[in-house]
């Protein structure tokens, strides 16, 4: 069972926050293929999220091929999100540790590091405007 939470101050739309939380649960193995997701009604009753918002999140995940709605029986996990090879994870982490050391040595605080990482991540998501 996933417990959904909405960060109301976030600029990220609520349905995308829900979709992200399902993706996280898949990545962390809390949800596995074949698992049944809480019904829209249950999510509304437990999390106080609007039914249309929950539906929109589920539809988004269905389109992404992660969930499937079965007529009359609910919404189920269809696919899992490929977990990364532990060795690759270790290697990436080690590189990141070196990088953070270097950043600290250069006088960056955690906030500066956050801002820098954030700017590089959003750079990858840029949409070109004609």
């Amino acid at each position: 069972m996933v417990e959904f939470r909405i960060d109301k101050a976030s600029g990220l739309p609520a349905y995308l926050q829900l979709a992200r939380q399902v993706r996280e649960a898949l990545r962390l193995g809390w949800l596995k293929p074949g698992d049944r997701l809480p019904t829209v009604r249950d999510v509304v009753a437990t999390s106080g999220v609007n039914a249309n918002t929950v539906l929109k999140a589920y539809r988004e995940l269905e389109r992404a091929g992660l969930l499937e709605a079965r007529q009359g029986s609910g919404t189920f996990v269809k696919a899992t999100l490929g977990s990364v090879d532990p060795e690759v994870m270790d290697r990436l982490r080690a590189k990141l540790v070196d990088w953070v050391d270097e950043a600290r040595a250069a006088g960056l605080e955690n906030e500066d590091i956050d801002a820098l990482v954030g700017s590089v991540l959003t750079e990858g998501e840029r949409i070109e405007v004609p």
């Binding site: 960060d7 609520a14 926050q17 829900l18 829209v40 009604r41 509304v44 009753a45 999220v49 918002t53």
Partner: peptide
């Protein structure tokens, strides 16, 4: 809000609600 949303999820009712508490509306 949670219980009102549950009631309208059951009945399919339309809701119009005036409020000043804008910070609590996301997802609601």
């Amino acid at each position: 809000m949670r219980d009102l949303l549950s009631e309208v999820a059951d009945s399919g009712a339309t809701v119009v609600m005036s409020t000043h508490i804008v910070t609590e509306l996301s997802g609601v």
